[in-house]
Simulated scan of single mutants.
Amino acid sequence: MRIGVPKEIKNHEYRVGLTPASVRELVSRGHSVFVQKGAGEAIGLFDEHYQAAGAALLAEPTEIFATADMIVKVKEPQPQECAMLRPGQILYTYLHLAPDPEQTAALLASGAICVAYETITGPNGGLPLLAPMSEVAGRMAIQAGAAHLEKSKGGMGVLLGGVPGVAAAHVVVIGAGVVGTNALQMAVGVGARVTVIDKNVDRLRQLDLVYGNRITTLFSTAQHIEEAVMDADLVVGGVLIPGAAAPKLVTAGMISQMKKGAVIVDVAIDQGGCFETSHPTTHAQPTFIVDGVVHYCVANMPGAVARTSTFALNNATIGYALSLADKGWKKALKDCVHLKNGLNVAEGKVTYAAVARALGYEYVDADHLIG
């Protein structure tokens, strides 16, 4: 199979779909890999590294899309990239379609086979291709939140860990999944006072056993969320319903009652966000203010630490990339239910139920397409 790796074009996105090591794995199986010149240059993965791994270099994204049977990316295709997709071509990347009707419509019109990293499941449950970026984003949420609590960046001028004689900041983490667990780990590490909220009591028990009285655990109710965010200096939203739009757990009314200069970091923004006042931002303009509360809603947070993120992502994605390349999409999906769960759009049809529900499309089971 011919695999294409275009350079990412989203604002301040420096990750790349395949590392040279991943290219070498594909080439060793007899596949041809075409990488756009300069695709990994910003993170120290130079063209000569790709050539040494067996890739061919192409200058323009149009050449990549025209040549490849499968496109491997990191972020969702931008409109000009959607326009270059063709019927039967495999797109393997993050998609986050539920809150994005324009992208969904463009992918349906393309006739391409669109496999989303974020809905591929694992044999022990969970979302193994989303997990590494959730780990990065959860840890970054505390880093970003701490920076934006500084007065010069719009915050109230609070140090997360405090100092002797001055209270530490209160960090509230909504969602105790991969994002939330990594966020609270970092927050506890810097000495903040941490509250974690989730509806899974077993998960809260696990965290209590690990962290004990260093954190407060609360069952997720509207009242608990409201009381916690009104006392918070920093709120991290890390709630996920696989493939579906994130629930709006923090209302505009709650935001209006928060401390002025408090910060929220909405890690769920890729799926529409879990704060009612959120909308996507970029690394170039990461924040906006509503009712005196700083909102950090960057839709590709791990792109800020692009080298770490690229290697972590490739560790998770290369196995399924090899399967798609070796077998073709129909046999690969037929052989692996977890990979089949990643199919969101194919041959002009929506094949993921949560996306169909969110956007009002007819749902077509993947089995009808793969036979």
Rank of each mutant, 00 (worst) to 15 (best):
M1H: 12
H12L: 13
H12Y: 13
A21H: 12
S22I: 08
S22E: 02
V23M: 11
S32Y: 07
Q36H: 08
G38V: 06
G38H: 06
G44K: 03
L45I: 05
D47S: 09
A56T: 15
A56S: 15
L58H: 05
E60C: 07
T62H: 13
E63M: 10
T67A: 14
A68V: 05
D69G: 12
I71N: 03
K75N: 11
P77Q: 02
P77K: 01
Q80V: 11
R86T: 13
L91R: 01
H96E: 06
H96I: 04
P101D: 06
T104N: 07
L108H: 03
A109V: 04
G111W: 10
G111I: 06
G111R: 04
C114Y: 06
C114F: 06
V115R: 00
A116F: 10
E118W: 10
T121P: 07
P123F: 08
G125M: 12
L127Y: 11
P128H: 10
P128L: 11
M133N: 06
V136M: 15
M140T: 01
G145N: 08
A146L: 08
L149C: 10
S152Y: 11
K153D: 00
G155S: 08
M156I: 13
G157E: 09
L159N: 02
L159D: 04
P164A: 13
A169V: 05
V171S: 02
V173H: 01
A176D: 00
G180R: 01
G180Q: 00
N182Q: 12
V188S: 00
T195K: 01
V196P: 00
I197S: 04
I197D: 02
D198Y: 05
K199F: 14
N200I: 11
V201A: 14
V201W: 12
V210S: 09
Y211S: 05
R214Y: 04
T216R: 14
T217C: 15
L218I: 04
A222R: 13
V229T: 03
M230Y: 07
P242S: 07
P242V: 03
A244V: 06
A245S: 13
A245I: 15
A246R: 00
L249W: 04
L249S: 02
G253Q: 10
M254Y: 07
I255M: 15
G261P: 07
A262N: 06
A262Q: 07
I264D: 00
V265A: 09
D266S: 00
V267T: 06
A268W: 04
Q271K: 01
G272Y: 02
F275A: 05
E276C: 04
S278I: 00
H279F: 14
H279E: 11
P280C: 07
Q285W: 07
Q285D: 15
P286Y: 05
V298F: 08
M301I: 15
P302H: 04
A304P: 00
A304W: 03
V305H: 03
A306N: 01
T308L: 14
T308G: 03
T308I: 12
F311T: 11
T317I: 14
A325K: 00
D326Q: 13
L333I: 09
K334T: 14
K334F: 15
C336R: 12
L339H: 02
L339V: 06
K340E: 15
L343I: 10
L343T: 02
V345A: 06
A353G: 00
A354E: 14
V355D: 00
A356M: 08
G360N: 09
E362M: 05
H368C: 14
I370Y: 08
